[in-house]
């Protein structure tokens, strides 16, 4: 594996800046760019993956508190079509809107039974479900429908981070445009050496005023094959990663352990150091 200049191997601790912040209110649906990422120790990212569309034949039932594996839910890895819908959830009004090329095709208040029925009927159609058996809108207080929620509650609340330099390195190696949003991270970081996270994914880090502990490198699945713009499965990312680097990782998870959020764009990202807002 080649490394860019100023790598993790140098004496200098790598430092970067937060480039962009996203939440994903509904598992598998559109990213929502946010001006600040509301995240506090022990609580995870507010508003991230708080809903999911559970498979009607699956194990999720309302009130279920046990985490379930991702195959119990509709998701991009199997249901690429979801990427063709522009969805937005407005937390203050509980309103989920869906657009097709800027045309609104659904607007529903998910706090009402009627709104929930409209949402599940809509996605039942889009996902080709039997009209009698639409998906179930899953939501449970203090639960998140992240892929790693089955590991532990701590992991369920972990923040996902992408090193933009690693994405660019993959682009350069493969000659393909790789939209960083394929990786559906909460925090996108610029200015770090490419692939420094391979060695630092287990290290403490500070992002702005928040202290975190790296807990897991993210192994990528077929969800990343789906083009977020066209909803076509057009880039075999896990296979490309394996061919280029001999692993299928991109990005990592970190648990917030101290300090305080929120995280702002431009916040410094420092490994093994106290955070600041310089």
């Amino acid at each position: 594996m080649t490394r860019e200049a100023g790598t993790a191997g140098n004496a200098e601790t790598p430092a970067g800046r937060v480039a962009a912040l996203f939440v994903y209110p509904v598992k598998g649906l559109s990213p929502q760019r946010v001006k600040t990422l509301p995240v506090e120790p022990g609580a995870g990212v507010e508003g991230d993956r708080v809903f999911a569309l559970a498979r009607p034949e699956g194990r999720y039932v309302k009130g279920q508190r046990q985490p379930l594996p991702k195959d119990q839910f509709f998701m991009l890895a199997r249901d690429a079509r979801l990427a063709g819908l522009g969805t937005h959830f407005d937390a203050p009004t509980n309103r989920l809107t869906v657009a097709v090329r800027e045309h609104e095709v659904l607007s529903a208040d998910v706090s009402t039974e009627e709104g929930e029925r409209a949402v599940t009927a809509f996605f039942g159609r889009v996902l080709d479900c039997d009209p009698e058996r639409p998906p179930v809108l899953a939501r449970e207080r203090d639960r998140r429908f992240t892929d790693v929620s089955v590991v532990s509650d701590g992991m369920m609340n972990a923040v996902s981070i992408i090193n933009m330099a690693s994405v660019r390195d993959l682009e350069r190696r493969t000659g393909a445009y790789v939209d960083p949003l394929r990786f559906r991270a909460n925090i996108y970081v610029d200015g770090l050496p490419a692939w420094c996270e391979r060695e630092l994914a287990g290290e403490d880090l500070a992002i702005g005023g928040l202290r975190l502990r790296g807990v897991l490198a993210t192994k990528r699945c077929a969800a990343t094959e789906v083009n977020p713009e066209t909803a076509e499965r057009d880039l075999p990312l896990p296979r490309l990663l394996h061919a280029e680097y001999g692993h299928i990782e991109m990005g990592w998870y970190a648990e917030a352990t101290g300090g305080h959020g929120p995280v702002f764009p431009g916040d410094r990202v420092v490994f093994g150091a106290e955070g600041d807002r310089s």
Binding site: R81, V100, H103, R125, V126
Partner: peptide
């Protein structure tokens, strides 16, 4: 085909 595909994302795909 790309246009029609994008504009029918809210339809039943079958």
């Amino acid at each position: 085909i790309a246009d029609v595909r994008a504009l029918t994302m809210h339809w039943r795909p079958s």
